[in-house]
Nucleic acid binder design. Structure first.
Length: 609
DNA sequence: GGTACCACTTAGGATGGCAGCA
DNA sequence: TGCTGCCATCCTAAGTGGTACC
């Protein structure tokens, strides 16, 4: 503990006699990971927690207290004048059936409701909620008219939008009160923000891509479905009146506060901490430390997988080629999925023959592999990659006598791959390569694209370009914003306007110079200076606008946020900001600064990934 | 080695607040 | 003051990877 080294636990600095809190509260860093100063402040409790953490492997906390999750409001029946129409006839539905019908009505203008799978799933599940009588009466979705309901909800939305400032303020305050009450927990005596304290409301399942379960009913979650996790000696959260929890447990080896099983896919859902919490933050830091460790080993690993390409055993060859793709292209591992349960998406190990095309020559390059498949979230991955001839020949071999729908790497899976990687470096899995390659790319690009003499705007464009290179590598795409074309046109107009102003200013400067040459007075000299300053200012403004436009254009379908939040070691960005005098607020917004408080506090400008 | 289950991270889209502008 | 468009935040789906069990 010193002015330069914060306490490992509470992140306080010693300044004179006093302690100052500097952002994130750092806790229980595992001793086997180097690189974090092991200073502890004078608070004995921190020393104790630190020692306990070291002694109890797998233990995530000592005490955990919270209020339990917050439930969505009960269903509010429709007013009597809002009707559901079947086959031209108005019908008053039972409460349960009506509620499910409103879910569909609210989505009427969404593309989802035009899909037959969605319609069929919805209709089947809806019928389950109907009374016997309703089921007999309502047998075709095409005869259902939800438009009155849809109109009603649209009006409600408009009403909400049109609320007065005061009414909105009341809602905001109520929301703040809820967040204050339910949005925080006490973990080892520290107040921590919860990530998602609300139970998911009922509705229709919206899977991504061609999901076979789209449109199915997501049922209302009751307290009787919820498992609470908290410490034994804490105040157990109270279930809502008239209800009880499914179970209350005290498992200190997990980080979640509450969980339930959702009915559509049978998955567990959790209430967990916010990324700004010490538990999440430290895990994040460890993730980047593992990726940095890979940096030291990667050349050996690369040499080894290249050796594998020549192995007599097909399984080893497939392993070598799969690892090459994971490393070179930052592909996801590609776990096996249950057929028919989810959208048909793949990663590296689950690639099928139909997902690649081999070209002996394409676009003037030799041995090109064309990838075309749907990855996570059904985002299309398309890439034409020149590969080494041995990889190319191996791929040919793997595809021999196979049908398009057969697995390309039929002898391996992610478990096998990860076991192998773990032998090369403890803690290494396929996913680490994505973190490692993303962070390495950012570091390289920043080093390449930034110079000290750049303006702030130029530096920011460089940063975004480096970030973009990573997003492209990781295939982080987004739908082009709906207003993109319009906003581009607006920017073009602004630029044209600014150019015009600049032309005028230049003309005026010329005139002023002419006049000064003639008169040579103090007044004319000052005028020239004034006009020169105006031209300079306008030139800067124009350049700024042009840079902004370039940035936005290049970003049309690229999502920068995902890599920034999940793959880029924040210390790279913090060090870059410090080195090039860029305010950290220009790179990270408030949430991101909270998440990366640990990096903002600890990173010096000479940090390299 | 296969499978089921669990815990956690990673992901894009929806929503809503607010700054900037006419 | 009202409108518009951008961006932060929220939401929850969809991945990865570990472990227990057979």
């Amino acid at each position: 503990m010193s002015p330069n080294n914060p306490c490992k636990y509470c992140k306080r600095y010693l300044v004179g006699k006093y302690l100052t809190i500097a952002g994130w509260e750092m806790a229980n860093s595992k001793p086997q990971i180097d690189g974090f100063a092991s200073y502890l402040c004078e608070n004995r409790a921190h020393n104790q927690v630190w020692e306990e953490d070291n002694a109890n492997n797998g233990k995530k906390w000592s005490t955990l207290e919270h209020k339990g999750p917050f439930f969505p409001p009960e269903y509010e029946p429709l007013p009597s004048n809002v009707c559901f129409v079947y086959n031209g006839k108005s019908i008053k539905l039972s409460l349960a059936a009506e509620e499910v019908a409103t879910f569909y009505a609210k989505m009427l203008d969404h593309e989802y409701t035009t899909k037959s799978v969605f319609q069929e799933n919805f209709f089947n599940d809806w019928r389950e909620e109907m009374t016997e009588e309703e089921r007999e009466q309502i047998n075709k979705l095409s005869k259902c008219d939800f438009s009155h309901m849809a109109k009603y909800f649209l009006e409600k939305t408009e009403e909400k939008k049109a609320m007065t400032k005061e009414q909105k303020q009341v809602l905001k305050e109520e929301n703040n009160r809820l967040t204050e009450e339910y949005g925080f927990c006490l973990l080892d005596g520290h107040k921590e923000k919860i990530g998602n304290f609300r139970v998911e409301p009922p509705g229709l399942f919206r899977g991504r891509g061609e999901h076979p379960k789209m449109g199915k009913l997501k049922k209302r979650i009751l307290p009787e479905d919820i498992t609470i996790n908290c410490s034994k000696d804490s105040k157990i959260p109270e279930a809502p009146k008239g209800h009880r929890w499914r179970k209350v447990q005290h498992d200190d080896t997990v980080t979640w506060l509450a969980s339930w099983v959702e009915n559509v896919q049978g998955n567990l859902k959790y209430i967990m901490l916010n990324p700004s919490s010490k538990l999440k933050g430290e895990k994040d830091w460890q993730k980047y430390e593992v990726a940095r460790k890979l940096k030291l080993k990667v050349e050996t690993i690369r040499r080894l997988y290249r050796e594998d390409w020549k192995n007599r055993e097909m399984k080893i060859r497939q392993r070598g080629v799969a690892l090459y793709f994971i490393d070179k292209l930052a592909l996801r591992a590609g776990n096996e999925k249950e057929e028919g349960e989810t959208a048909d998406t793949v990663g590296c190990c689950s690639l099928r023959v139909e997902h690649i095309t081999l070209h002996e020559e394409k676009g003037g390059q030799e041995f090109v592999v064309e990838f075309d498949f749907l990855g996570k979230d059904s985002i299309r991955y398309y890439n034409e990659v020149p590969v080494e001839s041995r990889v190319f020949r191996n791929l040919k071999l793997f595809m021999e006598n196979k049908d398009p729908e057969d697995d390309l790497f039929d002898r391996i899976n992610t478990i096998y791959l990860n076991k192998h990687l773990n032998q090369s470096m403890p803690g290494l899995t396929a996913k680490v390569f994505r973190t490692f390659n993303a962070s390495t790319t950012l570091q390289d690009q920043l080093n390449k694209l930034t110079t000290a003499d750049m303006t702030l705007e130029e530096k920011l464009l460089s940063y975004n370009r480096a970030n973009r290179a990573v997003a492209i590598l990781c295939n982080h795409q987004r739908a082009a914003p709906k207003t993109f074309e319009k906003s581009m046109q607006n920017m073009l107009d602004k630029i044209a306007q600014k150019q015009q102003q600049l032309d005028v200013a230049k003309m005026e400067l010329k005139e002023a110079k002419k006049e000064h040459k003639k008169a040579g007075t103090e007044r004319t000299r000052k005028l020239v200076e004034k006009k020169e300053a105006a031209v300079k200012r306008l030139e800067e403004q124009l350049k700024k606008l042009q840079l902004q436009m370039t940035d936005r254009e290049e970003n049309k379908v690229i999502a920068l946020g995902t890599s920034k939040l999940n793959y880029l070691d924040p210390r790279i960005s913090v060090a870059w900001c410090k080195k090039f005098n860029v305010p950290i607020e220009k790179i990270y917004n408030k949430t991101q600064r909270d998440k990366f408080a640990w990096a903002i506090d600890m990173t010096e400008e000479d940090f390299q990934f």
